[in-house]
């Protein structure tokens, strides 16, 4: 019985193969590699988003504080990282830093920068932290004056206000924009494939290169990214329904 279903599945594949100008069989035979690629993509995207967010919260607070030293420094950082392409940032970290002998001879090289994975994680984290900082900065600035005044009147200290009033309300306002940042970061993570990592696009390019194909690797990668984005938008819809209910 099992043998029969297998052969009819194979027949089905052969049929799809014959009507589409694509090598479906090659995609299916190498699908385990694509699954591995999804793992690398999600790992890099999720980790950089988490670390980037944790870095962005204090930076956004400092940037909104009008602090004479911190605010301009953070403005410079976000300006540089939002003003240059992620690909360039990743190349500078991956190929650029290795040109300095003192970096190459230090422990940082051996344990971190010699690995493509770490280079990608650093570049992605710095990039998303810059965008998230500006996004939260905007949300903090939009805090209704009345909320802050009420907090002061009820005796909240500066950090007490930030922690209990300003940040929770800013986070809520930032959810829709942040869901875009998450999707942009996922799409940006394809840069990993240019520095030898086997993420989803990296596996697609491997398949194209190995069998001299034109589209198969890219189409499979596109469908996988599409599926991941579908999942992300679903999650954010749930989050919005929960935390932005008072607006609906």
């Amino acid at each position: 019985m099992a043998e029969k279903t297998l052969s009819s599945f194979e027949k089905f594949i052969k049929y799809i193969d014959s009507i589409l100008p694509l090598e479906i069989e090659l995609i299916i035979n190498n699908f385990d590699r694509f699954i591995y690629g999804v793992g690398i993509t999600l790992e890099l995207t999720i980790l950089s988003l988490i670390i980037g967010f944790l870095l962005a919260v204090p930076m956004a607070v400092a940037r909104s504080s009008q602090h004479a030293i911190l605010s301009p420094i953070i403005w410079c950082y976000t300006y540089v990282f939002r003003g240059t392409p992620l690909l360039v940032q990743t190349y500078l970290i991956y190929y650029g830093l290795g040109q300095f002998q003192f970096i190459k001879n230090s422990w940082v090289w051996d344990s971190i920068l010699s690995s493509a994975w770490w280079c990608a994680l650093i570049a992605f984290t710095l990039n998303t932290a810059a965008y998230t900082t500006e996004l939260l900065h905007g949300a903090i600035n939009d805090t209704p004056k009345g909320e802050v005044e009420a907090a002061i009147a009820s005796g909240h200290s500066y950090f007490g206000r930030i922690r209990r009033i300003i940040l929770p309300s800013a986070f809520r306002r930032a959810i829709p924009a942040y869901s875009n940042e998450v999707i942009f970061m996922l799409h940006g993570s394809v840069v990993a494939s240019t520095i030898t990592l086997q993420d989803v696009l990296g596996v697609g390019r491997w398949l194209n290169g190995r069998y001299y194909l034109a589209y198969e690797g890219f189409i499979t990668a596109a469908l996988l990214y599409f599926a991941i984005v579908f999942g992300i938008t679903r999650i954010f819809r749930m989050v919005e329904r929960k935390y932005l209910k008072y607006l609906q």
């Binding site: 240019t194 030898t196 990296g202 390019r205 491997w206 194209n208 290169g209 190995r210 001299y212």
Partner: peptide, 23 residues
């Protein structure tokens, strides 16, 4: 280099090596 004859050969002749692909 990805998409070259060397990719084909390396996968065939050096199955236990970790292949790193470049553009």
């Amino acid at each position: 280099q990805r998409g070259t004859t060397h990719q084909c050969y390396a996968e065939k002749a050096f199955p236990d090596a970790e292949l790193v692909l470049y553009a």
